[in-house]
């Protein structure tokens, strides 16, 4: 059997020796932090224009993660490319000839890429949080307040889990283009639209991104949002279930299909 540390080492070399890793992760960090900071500054300046309900449930922690909606797309691209380029380049055959234990290969790749995405996600969430609170001034909060640390760590986990979910989906679809064509519109449009539509939202709130993002809220029903049937940790649990299903699906496809 292939030695797992050796395969992890090899997967780490694969990730650090392509430029797409660097630019997608920098993008995820920069877009999230910049957009969150801009929205914090904007809301601070226009606070009095917010509706009464929004003012009452103002959640400074959640506001400092507003950029995640856009920044998560870079995480999707990172996850898709990590797995998808094996197929588009034909490298998958060379990789499987070197490591014929397909589970070892896929799980090593997802472990290395997933840990990297989680680290970058956590870095992004902490920077985004502190910068956002600085811009919110008096309306801001701090890490010591109730549930705030949970939300900040959760925002980082959310970013990492989005990347791992994308890796699983790409392993199932075996194509970067197809995966991007499905995941990007799904997270950026479909999920965002359906969550605002009556009745559809009852389903959409169980989508991985909608359920997972609940962890970023400190104030229940933050910013005048609907009450949710699950709490922050249960929401993250729903997202983890999606991620596990995607990765398992990817493993079954890789295990059974001809390369």
């Amino acid at each position: 059997m292939a030695s797992v540390p050796a395969v992890l080492n090899s997967e780490w070399t694969k990730i650090r020796t392509v430029s797409s890793t660097t630019w997608t992760l920098i993008c995820a960090f920069a877009v999230t932090v910049a957009m969150s900071a801009a929205l914090c500054a904007l809301l601070n300046a226009t606070f009095d224009d917010l509706s009464e309900a929004e003012q009452a449930t103002f959640d400074p922690t959640l506001v400092s993660f507003s950029g995640t909606v856009l920044g998560q797309l870079a995480m999707v691209v990172f996850g898709v490319l990590v797995v998808g380029t094996e197929y588009s380049s034909g490298m998958i055959r060379t990789s499987l000839a070197a490591v014929p234990q397909r589970g070892t290969l896929l799980f090593s790749k997802i472990t290395v890429a997933g840990v990297l995405a989680l680290v970058v996600g956590l870095l992004t969430s902490f920077v985004s949080f502190f910068l956002g609170q600085a811009l919110l001034g008096d309306r801001g909060t701090d890490l010591g307040a109730d549930n705030v640390l949970r939300a900040v760590v959760g925002a980082g986990l959310y970013m990492g889990l989005i990347a791992i979910f994308s890796m699983g989906v790409t392993a199932m679809l075996r194509s970067s283009m197809l995966s991007l064509g499905i995941l990007v519109p799904f997270f950026f449009l479909i999920s965002q639209i359906l969550i605002a539509v009556p009745y559809a939202k009852d389903v959409a709130r169980y989508f991985p991104d909608q359920a997972g993002s609940k962890i970023m809220q400190v104030v229940p029903e933050a910013m005048g949002s609907d009450p949710s049937p699950y709490g922050p940790w249960a929401g993250l649990g729903i997202m983890v279930a999606w991620v596990v299903a995607a990765v398992l699906g990817g493993y079954l496809v890789l295990k059974n299909r001809d390369a």
């Binding site: 392509v18 430029s19 797409s20 034909g90 060379t94």
Partner: peptide
Amino acid sequence: ALLDAKSMHGGRS
């Protein structure tokens, strides 16, 4: 094994 010439990642050295 050499299976086909294009079975390497082009963005890597």
